[in-house]
Simulated scan of single mutants.
Amino acid sequence: MAISPVERELAIRLAAQSWLGAQRAQGVEYWTQRALEEFMFAGEKLPLMDRQRGIRKPAGMAAALSIRTVYRREGAERPYEDGLGVDGLLRYKWRGSDPDHAENRALRSAMTLRLPLIWFYGFAEGLYAANYPVYLLAEEQEHQQFVVALGEDQRMVDVGQEADPAIRAYVERMTRQRLHQPAFRAGVMRAYTSKCAICSFRHANLLDAAHITADAHAEGDPVTSNGLALCKIHHGAYDENILGIRPDLTVHVREDILGEIDGPMLRYGIQEHHNRALMVVPTSQRDRPDAVRLKRRYEAFLAAH
């Protein structure tokens, strides 16, 4: 039985998300323009990103399939600056100021048909992390923007309504985390070549992009220099102040932990790293751990005990 055009568009989107998810399961953290041209549907190539435009609507489709935010160095202005509304949800600016621009019509169709999109977010020149599913919930024409839900649960938020402060704070926190975390993780994994900074463990699915300054902190920017690639054991130990990292990039294991007797994980995984330099450090100076952030975090580690 033939499927409707809307059903076909939904099938394409779900297949694209599944394709990206399968690569993530194999340790792929980010994509290039060329890599995103390899997606196939029904035996034909269907690029997920447009070479020239920020909004991708393939020929024959009624609605936008993906949106893109290009990389800008820290402090550089973006051509379109998106922000949060009183409801804690993200806003995505129109293309230009003409509501009838083809790209704005493509976004409007995705909103009207309630179709999920993929958001490709640039974290380095020519490299993109992926956020999905993303939905457009409403259009605020007076502000030339769309209201965005990052994930299925955010579709339940009352658009434009100022929520209870605690609820709004939660929605805002989740919005910022979902927008920036994939790009932050991709940047950290790339800088550390998908290896733990402390022990060089290299299975990406068991690595975390750990913040030096917590993301909830005012200075917890989602930039690579505020991150460390750590395996889950060492990330947990870092967050629980079992070990710290000095500004000179050496590991400091807590004194009481050094005196414990346990199994091989404690001995070889924690204790033997005391006073040793990090095994993996980014080659790019811009990506190396920020010395000021490290110093503050190390001082907090010392003060905790």
Rank of each mutant, 00 (worst) to 15 (best):
R105W: 00
C196M: 02
P182S: 05
Q161F: 11
V157S: 06
R51E: 14
V253F: 12
R108P: 07
G96F: 03
G151W: 04
Y132N: 01
H235W: 02
G75T: 07
M40D: 04
E272S: 09
A22D: 15
D164W: 11
E38M: 07
V86D: 07
L117S: 12
V148A: 01
R68P: 10
R108A: 15
L65V: 03
K195D: 05
G27R: 06
R53H: 11
L258R: 07
P264T: 09
G54V: 06
D87E: 10
A218N: 02
S200F: 02
V148T: 04
G220C: 01
T193S: 09
Q52K: 10
Q23S: 12
F301H: 04
R155C: 12
R296A: 09
R178G: 04
E299S: 06
A63E: 10
R168M: 08
H274S: 03
Q52G: 09
R72G: 13
I118A: 01
N241W: 07
D208C: 02
D239W: 07
P99A: 01
H252P: 06
S284L: 00
R296C: 01
A15N: 09
L230Y: 09
D262K: 13
T193N: 10
I67R: 05
I261E: 15
A210S: 10
D287F: 04
G122S: 11
R202A: 11
A138V: 02
A129M: 05
K232H: 11
A62N: 11
S200P: 03
D98S: 12
Q141M: 06
W19S: 14
M189Q: 07
A204W: 03
Q181D: 12
S97N: 08
A237R: 05
A11C: 13
M111L: 14
Y170S: 15
L137G: 04
R95D: 06
Q177M: 11
E260I: 07
V188M: 08
I3W: 02
T69C: 12
N275F: 00
Q145G: 08
L65S: 11
V251G: 09
E125W: 03
H211L: 04
V292M: 02
L266E: 06
G60D: 13
H274F: 00
A22T: 13
D239H: 08
R73D: 13
L90M: 08
S284C: 00
C231T: 02
D208V: 01
G60F: 07
Y238S: 04
H234I: 09
M49Q: 11
H274E: 02
G236K: 11
R108G: 05
Y298L: 04
L14P: 09
V188R: 07
Y80F: 06
R176A: 07
A166Q: 14
S200W: 04
A59Q: 15
S225D: 11
G88L: 01
I12V: 15
G263N: 15
V6T: 15
R24W: 12
R202I: 00
I167D: 15
R34Y: 04
E77M: 07
L137H: 01
R288T: 08
M174S: 11
A35W: 00
L137R: 02
R296H: 06
V86F: 00
E44I: 01
R173A: 14
L107N: 12
H203T: 14
G227H: 01
Y30N: 12
